[in-house]
Design a protein around this nucleic acid. Structure first.
Length: 481
RNA sequence: GGCCCGUUCGUCUAAUGGUUAGGACAUCAGGUUUUCAACCUGUAAACGGGGGUUCAAUUCCCCCACGGGCUACCA
């Protein structure tokens, strides 16, 4: 490799939907590459034909795009590179760094059971390493199924200098003779991964810590080929509340599920970036550009963070509030029931969105929060209209008085805008000698049917005179029954 | 069982061989207010345990406990 450009890659296996943890791994790889002015590549590790899922690939592509993690160059598919791997296997075979193994799965199984009974780590016993050339030839011509194994030395140690963890030491005697080529002719992850990383000029292998134990095998492979090893950075893994692997029970694990739930990509990026990395300052809000500037692998944490999305809601609300009403309306549109808003003019919908903007945690909340604007009749118990200790009779008097005031033909100008409406109603309440709560609570309930909602002025101003009066009369009727 | 990685408020985390161990989210209490949200103020909340090293340890070392990963012809 003559190029000195920094290259990282995200190399997911298409066996399931892109996981939120995988998204963070991708994010960190992306950030590091971009920070260093390098490239971020995408490779699909589809060498396991039995677990392959076509839909998984799509979720990887659209998930990364959604987050804004655009990869450089073409997507690499390992399944299309079997010839390349075979060539490299031949090299290893020739240099005796790897060897044919004809052991049956049954024998391997038995061997492992015995080893485990002796409380030893299961490890291949190198039986086939001692096969003679003639024996190998014979088995090959007989078409006996075989795999190719890495010939790990018995002695010595492998030291990996991990960018986030520092020095990690492994004893060769603990390392199994890893299968590199499966009997179906496909390479295992280990071989394909090393060959491809080298071929693509990857300088920094950033991946989850589940790969730590196999890293010495990879180092051995680089050495066997005579290649320089890239830098390794092993990231922590998200765990669920109370410990253990992140599972569906604990909430969404698939990245795109967050999109469906109405989380903004910038909120998800910001949130997962902070899970395992810290800018060493008190800054909480980061867009992708700022993350690229400030991200540093040296500041990546090694402990496994518990994946708790409470703060994600806060981030989402922060970003929702940063949008203009017009932008937010567009973002909310997919979550609004079309039938409900079909008759509402755009400027009305925008007013409604603006109303919800500070209280919206997820875009998907918009429907339930604003449904009262779009329905003709509200369903709520009469008791909800009662402010504090007020009786139905009192409340009826208050609402009737209010309705009479609002219905006057000569005061249409008070509806010109929300502020005017508010000022006039408050003044009227004072003049009439009522308490604010006596009037405003039942008014708000009459207009929304909800125990909690935006203020009655905001709602009335959007509903307009006719609908507001209709709803007040409906409330009065409700109080009579 | 073996190997490897880790351990600061409930959560994400900062800092430090000598600090009132800091921030954010969440919680709780006030303020604002007709309710909710938003906003403002404040309260409470942590160095897993035991040994060392040291004048001094949350910080350095060791052991233990606990958590996590790997231990496949899966990645």
């Amino acid at each position: 490799m003559t190029t000195s450009i920094i290259k990282t890659r995200f190399a997911p296996s298409p066996t399931g939907n892109l996981h939120i943890g995988g998204a963070r791994t991708a994010l960190y790889s992306y950030l590091w590459a971009k920070k260093m002015g390098g490239e971020f590549l995408l490779r699909i590790e589809d060498t396991d034909r039995t677990r392959y899922q076509a839909t998984a690939e799509e979720s990887i592509f659209s998930g990364l795009k959604w987050l804004g993690l655009n990869w450089d160059g073409e997507v690499l598919y390992q399944s299309k590179r079997t010839e390349l791997y075979k060539q490299h296997i031949d090299k290893l075979l020739a240099s005796k760094k790897a060897y044919y193994c004809f052991c049956t799965p049954e024998r391997l199984q038995l061997m492992r059971e015995i080893q485990q009974k002796k409380q030893r780590a299961p490890k291949y016993d190198k039986t086939c390493l001692h096969l003679s050339k003639a024996e190998i030839e014979e088995k090959l011509t007989n078409k006996e199924p075989y795999v190719v194994r890495l010939n790990v030395p018995d002695q010595g140690e492998i030291i990996v200098q991990d960018l986030v963890r520092g020095k990690i030491t492994f004893q060769c005697q603990d390392i199994d003779d890893q299968i590199l080529l499966k009997s179906d002719g496909f390479p295992t992850y280990h071989l394909a991964n090393v060959v491809d990383d080298y071929a693509s000029g990857i300088t920094h292998v950033i991946r989850g810590e589940e790969w730590i134990p196999s890293t010495p095998k990879h180092v051995l492979l680089y050495r066997a080929f005579g290649w320089d090893t890239p830098q390794f950075a092993h990231l922590s893994l998200f765990i669920k509340k109370g410990g253990g692997k992140l599972s569906k029970r604990e909430g969404a694990t698939a990245l795109l599920e967050y999109k469906a739930q109405g989380y903004l990509p910038e909120a998800v990026v910001n949130f997962i970036a902070m899970l395992g990395w810290n800018p060493k300052s008190t800054q909480e809000m980061f867009n992708l550009e700022q993350l690229i500037q400030q991200f540093d692998l040296n500041q990546v944490h090694t402990a496994n963070p518990i994946f708790d999305t409470i703060k994600l809601d806060w981030y989402n609300n922060q970003y929702i509030k940063q949008y203009t009403t017009i932008q937010l309306t567009e973002l909310c549109r997919p979550y609004l029931d079309k039938q409900n808003i079909v008759n509402a003019p755009l400027h009305t919908v925008e007013k409604i969105i603006a109303l919800e903007q500070p209280r919206l945690k997820k875009l998907s909340d918009i429907k339930n929060e604003t449904d009262f604007f779009f329905t003709e009749t509200l369903n709520y118990p009469a008791t909800l209209l009662l402010w504090k200790k007020n009786t139905p009779a009192q409340t009826k008097i208050y609402l009737t008085a209010l309705a009479n005031y609002l219905a006057q033909n000569n005061n249409d100008e008070i509806w010109s805008n929300q502020k005017t409406l508010e000022t006039n109603i408050i003044t009227w309440i004072k003049t009439a000698g009522y308490n604010n709560g006596d009037i405003l609570w039942p008014l708000r309930v009459a207009l929304t049917g909800k125990p909690a909602s935006p203020s009655p002025f905001e709602v009335a101003s959007i509903l307009g005179k006719t609908k507001t009066l209709q709803r007040i009369y409906a409330a009065i009727t409700l109080l009579q029954s």
